[in-house]
Amino acid sequence: MRAVFLFCLKDLFRSRFIGAYFLFHLAAGYGLMQFAPTSSAGLGALLSLVLFLAPLCAIVFGTLYFYQSRGFQELMLAQPVSRKALLAGQGLALSLALSLAFGLGLGIPTVAAGFNTGADVLLLAVFLGGGILLHLSFLALAFLIALTVEDRLRGFSTSLVLWLMLVFLYDGGLLYILTYFSDYPLDRFTIGAILLNPVDLERILVLMQLDASVLLGYTGAVFRRFFGTALGIFTALGAMILWVVLPTALFFHRLEKKDF
């Protein structure tokens, strides 16, 4: 696995996409930090960008990468290397490359903007750490889709539909339920529903650290009561990690039965 990981990482570091991804985040980070009235507002704007783009880029690039490396996978699987070792090496390399491009791309401007002291360190850690987990979960979903769906076009469409559902439709549906059943106590349901979507988890975790829960009204108070506590933060982080672990476990389970 080590050799596959190192050579795939070398390949990715030379690819234009990873370089462009890093530069885009760097430019967006400096730009938004520069023009926002306060650094917190700048981080809020960056959060919106991350919640929209990170899942999209991770799931699209992950799906394309998997399909494009089918020839490589077929050739390497004819070598004395196990399926798990090969795909783990590839997946880890891609995860590390995207995480570094994202983490450094936004880390450098945010640290330069002063998010490196006191409570800001925790805020930045939640923001970047959550963003990286978001990348990892959507990469895991991308690999699972590309492994399961043989046809590239269908696989790519499935990835885009999943992104659309988790980034837009899920929140729309949730909002509709909350409005429709506003007379009922939905605190636990809302928290449960948030835990089922990694994009919402990242949003809520960062907003709690930004003290912006007041903007969310009563729901914000509910979130604050749960996600503002250590238990809430760890539960949310655990749920985000599960969003990485479960698709990965399912991927490796299916991998053993896959006809390449």
């Binding site: 050799a3 596959v4 050579f7 795939c8 070398k10 390949d11 990715l12 030379r14 690819s15 490396s69 089918r70 020839g71 490589f72 996978q73 077929e74 050739l75 390497m76 699987l77 004819a78 070598q79 004395p80 290397v81 196990s82 399926r83």
Partner: peptide, 29 residues
Amino acid sequence: PAYRKHIGYMPQYPGFPENLTVREIAKLV
């Protein structure tokens, strides 16, 4: 997979990471 050390395989459509050189590909294999 250990038995595959006995096999040299030449598929119809070879594929390797695009940004690696042939030397690096040989090193990986």
